[in-house]
């Protein structure tokens, strides 16, 4: 087994940062998230490998919150379109948890398969190596295991770190992982260490049969009732590691400008508002329902898995107390109305 002592972790990151932009979980002011090691300021930031989920998922590293697509200059017949060059600097997401790794797998399915490849996503994704931190001690709102995530063996990880007494085990899983291993080889020791027994999950839910059952619940009164507290603020979608919907907008000064995309949310009225005023999901209830059906039924029908990795962020951040675990339970309890 390859092993390194806890005190070595910054050295390892430092070494990886010689060849890549390394994103590390940090507490920065009031916010925790994955921030570039280049921006680390020891007076201001705390590195938090031990914390389970940071507040913001690392999806912005592959799908930036706003991203230029191309610029244009329209001077009559001299109209020019210039596609944005996507930075090709290698990146490492270091210390990412299994739920967020799984979310990247789901995004890979969306952006890289099904007829079209999203070139912006692909360019960024190709450059990313994933160093995951296996979870031996699930948190109070963690339920990844219930959603089919292996919290000890994140599949898309290039390297898996396992916390052990006084240090971490370093386990390379892919060619990308082997390259990273070479970079830090002299910082790793060969040593047999005992792995922890994983702790139990506090929260569990049984997703079996939910996708199938939802087919008969589209018109169920439950949506009216349970969407009532929802403010349609969209925080659940912004904090969700799997939510990938985006908007395309333009910024111009006269005839020059650029088109960009930015995260969007199905909780907003404008998301489906059509020119002319028709909106198929005008009411909060309809948007709330679409969000849960997308996560628990529609995505499953299209990609064979729910679009939820059980990270628990939406439960923690929702100002109205909407709880996806409770929603799954309520769906299981509901009697189809017709």
């Amino acid at each position: 087994m390859k092993f390194f002592k806890k005190g070595q972790i910054e050295k390892i990151v430092e070494r990886l940062a010689e060849k890549a932009d390394v994103f590390v979980p940090m507490l920065r002011g009031q916010q925790s998230g994955f921030f570039s090691w280049k921006s680390y300021d020891e007076n201001y930031d705390d590195i938090i490998f031990d914390l389970l989920n940071v507040y913001s998922p690392p999806k912005n590293i592959i799908l930036p919150q706003t991203e230029k697509m191309y610029s244009f200059d329209q001077q009559g017949q001299e109209t020019i379109i210039k596609p944005e060059e996507i930075p090709v600097e290698p990146k490492v997401i270091f210390g990412i948890r299994s739920c967020d790794v799984k979310a990247i797998e789901y995004m890979d399915e969306v952006f890289l398969t099904r007829t079209f490849v999203d070139e912006y996503y692909k360019a960024r994704r190709d450059q990313v190596a994933i160093v995951a931190n296996a979870c031996y001690n699930p948190g109070t709102n963690c339920f990844c295991k219930s959603m089919g995530v292996d919290h000890l063996n994140p599949e898309a990880a290039d390297v898996i770190l396992r916390e052990v007494e006084n240090g971490y085990v370093w386990e390379s899983k892919t060619d990308k992982g082997d390259i990273l291993t070479k970079q830090v080889e002299d910082l790793l020791e060969d040593q047999e260490v005992e792995l922890y027994q994983p702790n139990r999950f506090v929260r569990k839910v049984n997703y079996d049969g939910v996708a199938e059952k939802l087919k008969d619940l589209f018109d169920h009164p439950m949506w009216e009732r349970y969407s009532d507290p929802c403010q349609t603020c969209g925080i659940c979608t912004y904090m969700c590691p799997t939510c990938y919907c985006f908007d395309v907008q333009v910024k111009n000064w006269g005839d020059e400008g650029y088109r960009f995309r930015c995260w969007d949310s199905c909780m907003y009225r404008e998301y489906t508002l059509m020119a002319g005023g028709h909106n198929p999901r005008e009411a909060a209830k309809e948007r709330f329902r679409n969000r849960f059906l997308h996560k628990l039924q529609f995505f499953n029908e299209r990609y064979g898995t729910p679009l939820c990795t059980g990270c628990g962020r939406c439960i923690v951040t929702c100002p109205a107390g909407v709880d996806i675990i409770r929603m799954i339970e309520l769906i299981k309890e509901a009697e189809p109305s017709v």
Binding site: R114, F116, Y244, C245, D264, C266, M274
Partner: peptide, 19 residues
């Protein structure tokens, strides 16, 4: 059918009816 569309390639999310 008509829905609001942004990407046209089945990624941006909004034009779904069911799956």
């Amino acid at each position: 059918l008509e829905m609001r569309m942004k990407c046209g390639i089945g990624k941006c999310g909004r034009c779904n009816i069911g799956s």
